[in-house]
């Protein structure tokens, strides 16, 4: 990755005034309309319970213009909201047989034109022994991410980056494979 640089907007040259004003504009507010319109038919013969993960994440929900509201039809259908173990907001509805569930949502999210922050190449990678413990589950394999099958490939592709740092990690890794 010697040619790689952390993403930055183009740095304007001294004579490039239009680019300079564009860069300054990154902090300009950006209001985004977000929402959806979905419909589900439930043929029956039994009612169908559904879990919907269709809210803004609680961590950023404070930047919504109005409080979150999931509109459902038929009106009056109970909607039970809760937080799952990962902190995501969910809703459970039970749709009667022969019914049609409509779910709509409309809101405005307040953000800026700034691109997402990116780590620098110098941003350190913590050793597993020093990571916060709540992060450790995200080192493990999961249903769609079979790290047992992909480890050798990953180490072939990326194990030599950066030179010097890789060897210490090999040890950690082989102990994970145990």
């Amino acid at each position: 990755m010697h040619e790689s640089t952390v993403m930055q907007l183009p740095v304007p040259g001294p004579s490039d005034r239009s680019a300079a004003s564009s860069v300054d504009s990154n902090d300009r507010p950006l209001s985004l309309r977000v929402g959806y319109d979905m419909q589900f038919d439930v043929p029956g013969p039994s009612p169908t319970a559904m879990v919907l993960m269709l809210f803004a994440h609680p961590e950023i929900a404070g930047r919504l213009e109005t409080a979150e509201h999931l509109r459902v039809e038929p009106e009056g259908l109970p909607v039970e909201t809760y937080l799952d173990p990962m902190g995501n907001r969910c809703a459970r509805v039970v749709v009667p047989p022969g019914g049609t569930l409509c779910v709509t949502y409309d809101n405005v999210f307040k953000t800026t034109y700034a691109p997402e922050p990116q780590p620098q190449e110098s941003t350190p990678q913590a050793e597993a022994g020093l990571l916060p413990t709540d992060v450790l589950p995200f080192l493990l394999g999961s249903r769609y991410c079979e790290i047992d099958r992909l480890s050798a490939i990953a180490w072939d592709l990326f194990g030599k980056l950066p030179p010097g740092g890789a060897r210490a990690l090999v040890h950690c890794h082989s102990s994970k494979l145990g």
Partner: peptide, 27 residues
């Protein structure tokens, strides 16, 4: 605009249905 996080897509399916259903509209 972040909606949900998880270990992989299993944890954040926008709809998990416990029974029959048919998606008839999605925008």
């Amino acid at each position: 605009v972040l909606m949900a996080r998880g270990r992989d897509a299993t944890d954040v399916a926008l709809l998990t249905s416990f029974g029959r259903h048919k998606l008839t509209k999605f925008t």
